[in-house]
Write a protein that binds this DNA or RNA. Structure first.
Lengths: 97, 97
DNA sequence: TTTTGACTTGTCAATATTTGTCTAATGTAA
DNA sequence: TTACATTAGACAAATATTGACAAGTCAAAA
């Protein structure tokens, strides 16, 4: 599930309208629609505003948001697993220092 | 080791000058210097050109380059491991489809 | 069928970011 | 000092991102 699908699901569970949530976020309804549908990426501040508007745990939602951005970077790649392994190695080395 | 450190190491092993490699890549020496020092990110085409100029396996170097970009995105985060887990889950779900 | 309301789409200007180069500075070995 | 390699800073140009608006679709209600 993408970030957009995820927040749409939550919004619908809570029976909120795009217009209501968007207004709380101070953005256009159209923009929120695009974010939910994945044709636009949310900015970090928007992800935060979403957490607030939807009463979700902020850092959790931000994690999900960032993970989504990474998936987006990787999605056309062939050896994703290999790349993620390299990432983990690099991270591990960083954290040791 | 970052992407920049890595290619610098290879360049020095081969005793090539920044100017020589940069010229093969059709970029300014200063830019290559910055890429090696990590103050600028290489673009994909530049990573490819580097592979050629340094006679490295292109897709391998590109993997390294992309991994580096992801590390760069993550480096300020707190729960990197958690985020990477989410990424893997998402990837796994994607590949099943 | 017409209207209404929710959502979506396309487009555009404004803004922000990235990019590459130039020049000047710094480092260094002869 | 000189010569050459590298680096730093500043800048304009190129690109990308952003948010809003207006017009569109769609479904349910009137």
């Amino acid at each position: 599930m993408t970030f957009g699908e995820y927040i749409r699901e939550i919004r619908e569970e809570k029976q909120l309208l795009l217009r209501e949530v968007a207004s709380q976020m101070n953005i256009d309804t159209a923009l929120l629609s695009k974010i939910e549908r994945g044709t636009r990426l949310a900015r970090k501040e928007q992800a935060e505003a979403l957490a607030k508007a939807l009463k979700q745990n902020k850092s959790e939602l931000l994690q999900y948001w960032l993970a989504d951005k990474i998936v987006y970077m990787l999605k056309e790649e062939k050896n994703i697993t290999e790349i993620l392994k390299i990432v983990e190695q690099k991270i591990n080395r960083l954290s040791k220092k």
